[in-house]
Design a protein around this nucleic acid. Structure first.
Lengths: 161, 161
DNA sequence: TACATATCATAAGTACACATACCAATAGCG
DNA sequence: CGCTATTGGTATGTGTACTTATGATATGTA
């Protein structure tokens, strides 16, 4: 019987913990206040302006209820604008504000750069292997997650505007 | 500039999400109500009866404040007993109850078995590789986490009883 | 022994992450 | 057109996961 320290679940949780910590530390050091989800949400809204909350949730693999709160905070910070859709009065259409666009442009290179710190203990070839294995495992396990990723067509524009 | 879907942070989060989901689903199917942390905590208390909360937190790499809540819930379920230490009146000594010991014995094989479902998309040799890389990356990044793992000596008995 | 320092647990506050249930609104179908 | 099923967002509740602050207690040192 393996110890928990050898189990997949434990190791994955630990690495996620490290990853979140690296992200938070780096943001703090850069004088930014942005969480990983918030960054992902901004990125997805930029890629598809006018996206509604449910579609956004699927695009970054989060729960609908969770995204509600995330968007609340992004709106409070003035990074995102939320308007009732004209096509579907249930839906909230999301767009970046000027401030949001600017912040995203500034933060993106930082987030990109910090990725290497997460796996700093591995040499480049190991990093590449790990990334490939993570990709394969997450693709295969996607359906098992509570909030599966709902891949979006690259060219797809928001249908619900 | 890579998309978020290719970034280490995103992939790690997704795999953790899948891992947590597999754990929860399996527990529900087996008619058990136990979260991953709760399982880890029970395991650590069994390995070192009389351990205090801060040491427990270090042993399974959780924040001290988080563990407080986890232990609360385990105590409420009657799986753990919490008593003020006689050696140090600040510390709370933790021990499994008979019910806790029984539950742990029943659940352990299930948790062990479910690990393979988390990485079901990978073939055995890839699973082995991924596990090794995860181990190396977490060991190397341990100090970066907010709640680093404080490895315990295998034979070490609780000093604070 | 007096005192500064460190440690254990808890409290309060923020932010996820999810389940569940609900309402408003749309969509599919006969 | 009316009925039913589905969907988008929110509300509520549970359980992490962390920060910062506080009180009680230990500990090291002068």
């Amino acid at each position: 019987m393996p110890e928990i320290y050898e189990m997949a679940g434990h190791l994955i949780r630990r690495l996620n913990q490290i990853s979140a910590s690296v992200f938070a530390d780096r943001m703090a050091r850069e004088g930014r206040e942005l969480t990983p989800v918030q960054f992902a949400a901004l990125t997805a809204v930029e890629a598809e302006p006018g996206i509604d909350q449910a579609t956004l949730a699927g695009a970054i693999a989060y729960d609908r209820a969770t995204i509600g709160g995330v968007v609340d905070r992004l709106e409070q910070k003035g990074l995102i604008e939320r308007t009732v859709s004209r096509k579907d009065r249930r839906a909230r259409t999301l767009c970046l504000t000027e401030k949001g666009r600017r912040l995203l442009d500034e933060v993106r290179p930082i987030v990109w750069d910090l990725q290497k710190d997460i796996l700093a203990g591995l040499d480049p070839s190991e990093q590449k292997d790990l990334l490939a294995l993570l990709k394969k495992a997450t693709d295969a396990g996607n359906a098992l997650a509570r909030a599966p990723l709902q891949p979006r067509d690259r060219g797809e524009k928001a249908k619900v505007l």
